[in-house]
């Protein structure tokens, strides 16, 4: 009983942080129109005594940035975009890799060596570098303004981030499936006349959904890491506005999305170290809680045997039995 609480405790702790910050972010977006509290200066008797940025203190929990925006508020407002994007991309990664992995496991086992060699070759290329190289021409604002519309830029980034890992993840999932397909009970199911789709639905998914959940969470972490890195290199979701005028303003994000915040604030690092550290810390906490979930899931997987194919209910068994035994007794003379 105690281990039951412990193993769920990890998942509980991790997911409560993520759900909590997402909820807060949505509430802020829906009920307060995504407004950010801003304090540009503190007045005592109509005289300004202090101006932004403020250090973290009791009245400003995480401090403020140079424009006086409260960083805690900024982080909460941006959470839904960043975490949402991470979940979104990871879901599609999983979906496509599952489809590809299934095809690989059921039909392409002949070409296993070629395919794994190809996907191995793929893993030697650092993803961040590749993503940066492919995204920069599209996301950066050229001197004459953006070449592509906002929607194209966003979808290009999302599709690219999905495609980049498909070879590796599909192979991982495909190998998991093919291990199960080699088991004896699959052979007997096939002998009894089960179609491939039936086997996938009734036998394979039941066995690997825990593993899939773990891979999914790891994918969310990976997406968040890539987003953070891209943000550091000043490639923001939906494009980087670059000010080409003489008074070079820093590149700006409009959604308070975390990776953009990292890029925005990073120039302030030496002067006001807490400002860039806040979005980086937000990323760190999110990844930490996702890792907690992974740990909980892994414990769950090791401690319990996989649930087997759903048992037929007692009534159905009787029905089947009746059908089978409903034969006429032929007596021979």
């Amino acid at each position: 009983m105690k281990s039951f609480i412990v193993k769920n405790f990890y998942i509980l702790l991790g997911s409560s942080f993520i759900v909590g910050i997402l909820l807060a972010s949505c509430i802020n977006g829906i009920f307060f129109d995504g407004e950010i509290k801003q304090t540009q200066a503190i007045y005592i008797d109509a005289y300004p005594v202090d101006a932004a940025p403020f250090k973290p203190s009791q009245s400003f929990w995480l401090g403020t940035d140079t424009n006086g925006r409260h960083l805690l508020h900024v982080i909460i407002e941006g959470a839904k975009y960043t975490i949402g994007l991470g979940l979104f991309i990871a879901i599609f990664r999983m979906f496509f890799s599952f489809v590809l992995g299934t095809i690989y496991a059921f039909h392409l086992q002949k070409y296993q060596r070629v395919l794994s060699a190809l996907s191995n070759a793929f893993q030697y290329i650092p993803v961040v570098l590749l993503a940066y190289f492919l995204l920069r021409p599209v996301l950066n604002q050229a001197f004459e303004g953006f070449q592509y519309s906002f929607a194209i830029r966003v979808w290009y980034e999302i599709i690219l981030l999905i495609l980049l890992v498909l070879p590796t993840v599909s192979l991982v999932i495909g190998n998991e499936i093919s291990i199960i397909l080699r088991k004896e009970f699959i052979q007997s199911a096939r002998t009894l006349g089960a179609s491939s789709f039936f086997i996938l639905r009734k036998h394979v998914i039941v066995h690997i959904y825990r593993r899939l959940l773990i891979i999914f969470t790891q994918q969310v972490i990976q997406v968040l890491l890539i987003l953070a890195h891209l943000g550091l290199f000043e490639l923001y979701l939906g494009g980087t506005k670059i000010d080409y005028s003489i008074m070079k303003a820093a590149p700006i994000t409009t959604t308070y999305e975390w990776s953009g915040l990292i890029g925005d604030y990073f120039d302030l690092f030496i002067v006001y170290p807490w400002i860039p550290l806040v979005p980086i810390g937000a990323f760190t906490l999110t990844i930490l809680s996702l890792n907690l979930i992974v740990k909980g899931l892994e414990k769950n997987m090791n401690s319990e045997p996989a649930t087997h194919t759903k048992r037929l209910k007692q009534k159905e068994i009787k029905k089947v039995a009746l059908k089978e035994f409903n034969f006429k007794v032929v007596t021979r003379d």
Binding site: L225, H229, L232, I262, P273, L277, G281, T284, L288, L290
Partner: peptide
């Protein structure tokens, strides 16, 4: 080990730089 492992490299390098300063 679990905590250290989940820290992103960005965070570690930033903290080290802050430490140096």
């Amino acid at each position: 080990v679990f905590v250290l492992e989940s820290l992103p490299d960005l965070f570690i390098v930033a903290v080290i730089q802050m430490g140096i300063v």
